[in-house]
């Protein structure tokens, strides 16, 4: 095995583009995943990414950009869930399950009724290696927009998630923040969908945040670690998939999972091994 073999993937334009796309999308998802993981909203990423399907089909029918349809459907799912939860005696997770599957099912039924050149396979599983120019452009715009807005409001959103009452007490508009956050989530999902597809988007919206949480207890550092891990996994996963000849999205997610496992085992403060050692030391100390 020589060097030229190892750098072979970088010689193909589509491989380099795929890596850059994956890194951009993965990094954006990672930032959002920090908020989702802290708030216990993992199901939210799952729900919104499925609920975009009817929006995509409708957008196709009326000839609008698919991203716009997806975005609106995602927002509908998130706000509909909130509204129904507030007005019924059901737990939030159950309502979310009902709403997003309802929307996804609607999308499926509509899908069979219109003949499109959108492939269901692409929406479900992404097509990182064969991504089209226009899709790439949409994804880049969506991701950039999300990152810029988040950079501006990140502290407000953090306060809102940590203590909504306090956010209100210092005069923040919490309703606006809530919907802004959901809008950013939808936007990110739209970007990620083109690259890795619905189901693996869910992974990218959970795993990096957990890596960050295991390695730090400051939010800023947590975000940095999460996006670092996600960008690394994006590049490494795409690179590996070239040699394995397997699904790129799956390779990216599995790389993230490996990093997470390492963090859970060897993390300096919250790692399993560290804790075990600390517990042993404490026990030894007590015996003396």
């Amino acid at each position: 095995m020589n060097l030229s073999y190892l750098i072979e993937p970088f010689q193909y334009r589509f491989m380099v583009e795929a890596m850059l796309m994956a890194a951009l999308v993965g990094g954006t998802c990672a930032v959002l995943s920090c908020y989702l993981v802290l708030k216990g909203w993992s199901l939210m990423g799952d729900a919104v990414s499925h609920a975009v399907l009817p929006g995509i089909v409708l957008a196709y029918i009326v000839g609008a950009p698919l991203a716009v349809g997806a975005f609106l459907a995602g927002l509908l799912c998130a706000s509909g869930t909130g509204w129904i939860t507030n007005h019924s005696r059901l737990k939030g997770d159950a309502v979310m399950g009902v709403v997003f599957t309802g929307l996804f099912a609607l999308g499926l039924v509509m899908f069979t009724k219109v003949t499109t050149d959108v492939h269901l396979n692409h929406i479900l599983f992404g097509s990182l290696l064969g991504i089209e120019r226009s899709d790439m452009l949409q994804a880049v715009i969506a991701a950039t927009l999300t990152l810029v807005i988040l950079a501006v409001v990140r502290k407000d959103i953090l306060l809102y998630l940590f203590d909504a009452n306090q956010a209100r007490a210092v005069g923040l508009n919490t309703t606006f923040l809530h919907y802004l956050f959901l809008a950013l989530l939808s936007l990110t999902i739209v970007a990620a969908l083109q690259a890795v597809g619905i189901i693996l988007t869910v992974a990218m919206l959970i795993v990096p945040g957990c890596i960050g949480l295991l390695l730090s207890d400051r939010f800023g550092r947590m975000t940095a670690i999460a996006s670092g891990a996600a960008i690394f996994s994006a590049i490494a996963g795409t690179y590996l998939s070239y040699f394995l000849n397997g699904e790129t999205g799956a390779c990216i997610v599995l790389t993230q999972a490996i990093i997470l496992t390492l963090a859970a085992l060897f993390g300096p403060k919250y790692g399993i091994l560290f804790r075990a050692r600390a517990a042993r030391r404490a026990a030894a100390g007590r015996e003396q």
Binding site: L38, D156, L159, F162, V170, S216, R218, F219
Partner: peptide, 21 residues
Amino acid sequence: EDVDWAFPVSVMDVVLMGRYG
């Protein structure tokens, strides 16, 4: 009971949240 104590913020961060306004 209304506070999530696992949130990754420091004591100083919390106090500064009082100054956001």
